[in-house]
Design a binder for these strands. Structure first.
Length: 434
RNA sequence: GCCCGGGUGGUGUAGUGGCCCAUCAUACGACCCUGUCACGGUCGUGACGCGGGUUCAAAUCCCGCCUCGGGCGCCA
């Protein structure tokens, strides 16, 4: 396939070979058109049915939609062709015929339900919209990685099969590891913290996490991709700076490099880099503001976690990304540090999009005695986490960090109605295949 | 985990007790058509998730199961 030309690169006067999928055949009688699609676009192949070789016309016009074909011919300038050029074929080869009855319509003339699309993801991703989402996701991941490198991070990978959970609270997928009890990891949290105490100091990871919660919503997955960041010698304010920088980098990269995809998704004006610096509301300010909206039946009191309804009320009120800082220690995990002068208040924060929570992070507890006390307060056995706590006895620097859900980032950026749109092969309460 | 709403040709849908051996679009098959670009035209094939019940009569009502989607909790 060395001599293959992409459809978008076809220049008049050239003799080329294009290879791709049969998008459509339009047979008008004496003239017929075969539209070939590849990842760069589409091109029209013209058959003058009375004048051309009979078997060539037969092959080119009787091929089923979505079959894979290779067409060799001359590119001619033709104002009447959709792209201004068309191929006058010398030969057409069917590399892989498709069954005539397709489980969904990649041209998009007839809609398909999300579950039908997910059952036939390969075909679904031949359509412009679905493909565009994953091209944008790829751009986001590249931008995020580049940004982390620009602020001196080392990319790491931590184990996904673990002996204990991170927080003990959430549901884990159990498995058997050579006869031992083990779990799929729900977060790189503990491992990335161990790395800030290593010579690496400042790390990030992009990888999967697994949560066995039986939720059934458009914003949860049982296998998700997390962007984790953790750095030594920074506090939660600096961690928020990096967090905001990462998100801006992602939006900027998409705005700069994904014109075509945004156009396909009809989002050219909808996706823009956030202008304002993200407001940093304290938890206390947040609940006051929520109560002031009057959207909730019952007023929130200090110590309440924010319900979905409360988050929505606040999101509508703020109208853009924002941080919530200084959460009550009670509702944040043990590894988040409390304020020394107010132990009821933690240095945890969340980054919110008006639609949902995107990031959770905070200043970590790096002092051994306080950390162990925190375990006990949350009813966890410090012994079970000895591999983790032990390292805090050998010089663990002050540090902070956070974690994003990639799918939520893409979902909120593109206004996708369902998080499954942002994963190739989602794992949810009922879907395990493909 | 609790709660709510759906499942009708390949795909997406209409139909809420008899007007339904089921509507429309698209796809598929056949034929006609020399500039389509959602090509057009004629004809044709093709479906009520599964099991039980109520009724003279069930796609339609009831029960169970399967399955899909959503709300809440919790979270990324």
């Amino acid at each position: 396939m060395d001599d293959r030309t992409h459809t978008a690169d076809a220049e008049p006067g050239e003799r080329i070979t294009v290879a791709g999928w049969v998008h459509e055949v339009r047979d008008l009688g004496g003239i017929a058109f075969l539209i070939v699609r590849d990842r760069t676009g589409k091109i029209q192949v013209k058959f003058a049915t009375d004048e051309m070789d009979e078997s060539l016309v037969e092959t080119g016009t009787n091929v089923s939609r979505e079959s894979v074909v290779s067409v060799t011919g001359t590119v001619e300038e033709e104002p009447r062709a959709p792209t201004g050029v068309e191929i006058v074929p010398e030969s057409v080869e069917v590399l892989a015929p498709a069954d005539p009855e397709l489980p969904l319509d990649p041209t998009g003339k007839v809609d398909a339900d999300l579950s039908t699309r997910l059952d036939n993801r390969t075909l679904d991703l031949r359509s412009g919209e679905s493909k565009a989402i994953f091209e944008i996701r790829s751009t986001v991941l590249k931008a995020v990685r580049d940004y982390f490198r620009s602020v001196g991070c080392t990319e790491i990978n931590t184990p996904k099969i673990v002996a204990t959970g991170t927080e003990g609270g959430t549901e884990l997928f159990p498995l058997t590891y050579f006869g031992q009890e083990a779990f799929m990891n729900q977060s790189p949290q503990l491992f990335k913290q161990l790395m800030v105490g290593s010579g690496l100091e400042r790390v990030f990871e992009v990888g999967p996490i697994f949560r066995a919660e039986e939720h059934n919503t458009p914003r949860h997955l049982n296998e998700a991709t997390m962007i984790d960041f953790e750095s030594a010698f920074i506090d939660h304010h600096e961690a928020m700076d990096v967090c905001e920088g990462t998100l801006r980098a992602a939006y900027e990269a998409v705005e700069a490099n994904c014109h075509e995809q945004l156009e396909t998704l009809d989002l050219t004006d909808a996706v823009t880099v956030p202008q304002q610096e993200f407001p940093r509301l304290t938890y206390e300010e947040a609940i006051e503001r929520i109560n002031a909206t009057g959207e909730l039946d019952e007023q929130l009191v200090w110590g309440d976690d924010l319900s979905t309804e409360a988050e929505k009320a606040l999101g509508d009120d703020v109208g853009g990304h924002y941080f919530i800082t200084d959460w009550p220690s009670e509702i944040k995990p043990f590894y988040i540090q409390d304020y020394d002068d107010d132990p009821d208040l933690s240095k945890g924060f969340d980054l919110m999009h008006p639609r949902m929570e995107l990031v959770s992070g905070g200043q970590r507890e790096h002092r051994y005695d306080e950390l162990v006390a925190g375990f006990e307060q949350q009813g966890l056995d410090p012994e079970a986490f000895e591999y983790y706590t032990k390292m805090f006895r050998y010089g663990m620097p002050p540090h902070a960090g956070w974690a994003y859900g990639v799918e939520r980032l893409v979902m909120t950026m593109l206004g996708l109605p369902n998080i499954r749109e942002a994963v190739l092969f989602p794992r949810d309460r009922q879907r395990l295949s493909p």
